[in-house]
Simulated scan of single mutants.
Amino acid sequence: MPSPEGPGDRGGGRELSAPRLRHDTPERAGLDPGELRRLVVEFHALTTGERPWAPGAVLVAGRGPVIAVEEAAGWAVRYASYDPDADAGVELPPDARVPVTVDTPFDLASLTKLFTAVAAVQQIERGTLGMDARVGAFLPEFRAVVEHGVTVRELLTHTSGLRPELPLYDCVDAEERLAMLRAEAPVGAPGTYTYSDLNPLLLQHVLERVTGRTLDDLVHHGITRPLGMTATRFGPCPDAAATEDQRRPWAKVDRGMVRGVVHDENAWALGGVAGHAGLFSTGGDLAVFCRALLAGGSYGPARILGPDFVELLLTPPGLGFALDQPWFMGELAGRGAAGHTGFTGTSLVLDRATDTFLVLLANTVHPRRRGVDSGPRAGAGTRVARAVRGVRGA
């Protein structure tokens, strides 16, 4: 029987080597320096003013093996709490605030889904999981999805018909949460796209059943350890940027100011390790993740996927990855760009057509969640696209 371990765990065999990332000039990266200067100016403006887009943020952008931009701005921790009467954050004294650095970890939120998707495709590569296998073949006790014939492909493409989420955070214990998941039936027609946190949650159960290992173990041994992503892990992560003063009615649970523990209420209720949320990481680590996928699954001597399986992962409609979405990719979209966003203010884009990548991490939910504004994400993507083309001007 094939080992459940990911490609990064293998010893011997064919060794592939892809260039590691290095810091260098925009010109060496084949990027227009003027556009990148504008990108940096616009990035720093995101964390200024009384109501900034985010208190703190990190930006990493590059092309090929070159990081041409790596910037940090603002505060990892700026507020002690949120005052609902004033509709404003309660500022910490300046000497109590924590500045963002390029090494600050952020709560990735839904970027975690990308790692779950890669872990699943690793098992498909190894032959322990089939794309069109029925979930019920691995999880017969999940009776509702068994009756509807939900497949692994449908989980990866958000076409299972499952609703966006369940109130697992309201359950009294783990047994009740598991019972709720097992009883949840699709509400939409199979094949219809509905973005749902339940898809990667069920996929997590499939992976853990198939391999006999927990999701955090699979991600560590199959992805982050072989790639040298030492700052990427499931929480707790005490030095991470703060997120929300989490209280009802604007939040779903009452937890106070959250820092170093996953922001997502369901992931928190599940112990911090979930298929849809829970990972923390830095801009530099995510640049490595992007670079490995752009290089066909390899980074240095490590290989996490073969090129054909990276192609499978990123072929429309994308397995876990969103493809060509202008609302957060800007002008990088439209040529096969792939990526995702996270509720806490995170995003990444990798553009195979131009061999470029863009990581934007922020704590936009600090001190409390508000309506999503992806204009800055799209604007950054547009600047990078124009830097590739050498187009000047706004």
Rank of each mutant, 00 (worst) to 15 (best):
Q204T: 10
A72T: 06
T47K: 07
G379Q: 10
A80L: 05
G318H: 00
T157K: 00
L358V: 06
A322V: 10
E147K: 00
E331L: 13
V253T: 13
G56S: 03
V219E: 15
P105S: 06
P99S: 14
G284V: 11
A189W: 10
L36G: 11
A322N: 10
A185F: 14
L279W: 00
R126K: 06
P186W: 11
P33Y: 11
V365T: 11
P326A: 10
V135D: 15
V206I: 12
I67K: 02
T104Y: 11
T282P: 06
R377C: 12
P55L: 00
V118H: 05
A337R: 03
L156P: 06
V206Q: 03
L360N: 07
T230D: 09
A179Q: 09
L155G: 02
M131K: 01
Y82L: 04
T224Q: 12
G62D: 11
E15C: 04
A119T: 12
L332H: 09
H340D: 14
T243E: 13
A333G: 04
E208D: 13
P376D: 13
A292P: 12
S281N: 05
V310W: 00
A86T: 15
R370W: 09
G30H: 04
S298C: 00
T354D: 14
A144R: 01
V273I: 01
T243G: 07
A387M: 03
G49I: 15
G278R: 02
L166K: 02
